[in-house]
Nucleic acid binder design. Sequence first.
RNA 1: GCGCCUGUAGCUCAGUGGAUAGAGCACCUGCCUUCUAAGCAGGGAGUCGCAGGUUCGAAACCUGCCAGGCGCACCA
Length: 638
Amino acid sequence: MQRVTGQLRELLVTTVTDMAPEDSAALVTLETPPRPEFGDLSCPVAMKLARVLRRSPLAVAEELLERMRPRLSDYVTDATVTPPGYINFTYSERVTQDILAEIRMKGRQYGGQQVDEAGKVIIEHTNINPNKAAHVGHLRNACLGDTLARCHRKLGYPVEVQNYIDDTGTAVADIVVGFNVLKKEAPVGEPFDHVCWDLYTEVNSRYQDDPQLLEERTRVLQAIEAGDNDMAELARRLATRIVHCHLDTMAVFGIDYDLLTWEGHILQMGLWKHAFALLAEHPAVRKEETGANAGCWVIGLADHPEFSHLENPDKVLIRSSGTATYVAKDIAYQMWKFGLLNTDFGYEEFADQPSGRTLWTTCPTPSDGTDLVFGQAHRVINVIDARQKYLQDVVRVSLDTVGYKEEANNSVHFAYEVVSLSPATAEELGVEGAGGEGKGAVAMAGRQGIGVKVDDLLARMVQKARKEIRARRENMPDEEVDALAHSIAVSALRYYMLKLHPGSTVVFDFGEALSLQGNSGPYLQYAVARAFSILRRGGEAEGEPRWPDKLLAAEKALLLTIGAFPEMLLQATGALQPSLLTEYAYRLAGAFTDFYEVAPVLNAEEPVRGFRLHLVRAFCDAMTSIMDSLGLVVLESM
RNA sequence: GCGCCUGUAGCUCAGUGGAUAGAGCACCUGCCUUCUAAGCAGGGAGUCGCAGGUUCGAAACCUGCCAGGCGCACCA
């Protein structure tokens, strides 16, 4: 399929260049026509050229087509011009034959390829404060990040997924205050991160009327930063334990990581020191003697166009107390990711993940003499919520300001909007202020314990799926029902998280997220399950496919839709838009369903039967590959 | 005040200058002795926030407004 579109594009470009000024070649675009009578591929370039050439679009289109007609390959069986000036191409059967041949060759690897100049990509995602259970906002982050990682891997990029753990901030300190100062104990049998969810809320509410407790937190924070004491050790243990909870939660969704990077190690291993030495060489980084920032080291970003409008375009890197700010460590971390620091973390194994991938963690003792290589990225994608845009801009612009132009250009903040709760859901959770007259969505707030925990949501989802399965399969053993319900629930939630445009806030609603119908993950699973069911009953297609005299429209559409995947994957990955893939996957499932409705397989006469078995197999393989890139579970039966 | 994001069907959302603006949910009417009805076919439903502009062509691009959200710390 890429071959045909490539050929046609090339032919159009050369023909256009013959007829019009050279820069017109960039005007050539191709699109899928909205209706089948316009053919399989259309080009609106004549309408764009009409003005340059001062001729009617229709006439330009006619001439373009006549000029290129003799050079059309046998991939094209028909080419027409339709008002207001489109050139339409209809594919010959060779195109669909090639698609089937390619997918028979590549199987479940279909769509995967090795793109040129695939430099190493680091994707940072999840990044949950290790002090409470993960909520649906975190799940959105992790699903997006994990999908970006899967897509890049499929295109041959070396990918390293990092999960940044902020172990030295107030969030963890609050929990330490809860356990250590308030002497709280974790009840047995309850998930530890869930216990901390409530404790975090309680501690924060106590701060309101107990200023002394806030002073305790300050002491805890200092102790954590100083290190090598009981308080710091407790913080480390608590954070580690919660990180394990997060990893377990995410693993259920097929999400894994290569490396945990701990904020504390950036100081402990001297990364900040090295980074600062490099930064300080630049005049933009200076110590302030007067003004609001007196006594601080700041980086001045006023000269940068993105920051020149700000009242105060300076950012504090080192406080007057001598400690590094969070953003300072973030800058050092970003520099390390690009291999700009001549120092490194130590590394050790942290856990085996269900995916089989080994998870490493940074550690505070050097790993000299090993061949471990982390960092050294060509491109860095940080999946971080949109509220942190300003700080991510500071990181990127700081690199740019001190001279790391290329690294700044390769720093991508993948911003996604927060998840809030629908009034109905908020009310269901007993959130105060919900319902009543305030009809707006309710923002999640960790400190107040407002939010939907991922584990709880999944449990409800599994329960709903279980009920649906039971309604269809009375005799299925309980364990099978559970496993099936799990796969359906996970995929429904992942799909829900991925199908939405990252730039809009998700108003989370139980009713909608729990949907198993329509444009949803289970719809894809169902289409594949029906396909597998045919293969189970009909057996695998054997030998070379014997092409029928005339393809049904549904057969042709199915093959062409399958054929679009490689290009879709490139596009979605290049544009960092997973929703393009969910949308495409839904279309493909729909194309199969159309085929399923009109083209009986098992009861068809040979050789049609054999041919259709090939189509069904092709669909299964293609869909498996697509769902793999989205992290959705393929079910052979449901 | 400055900056960013969002505004499309009753609801939730797709739609990266092209053909008659599309899905799902909800609602209504049909379809299971025929490969899984978690499905399919059909129906009603729209001032694409508003007003200008650019263009052969604008939901999309530009300008200005309106509405909602977020950000602009020696917090993380």
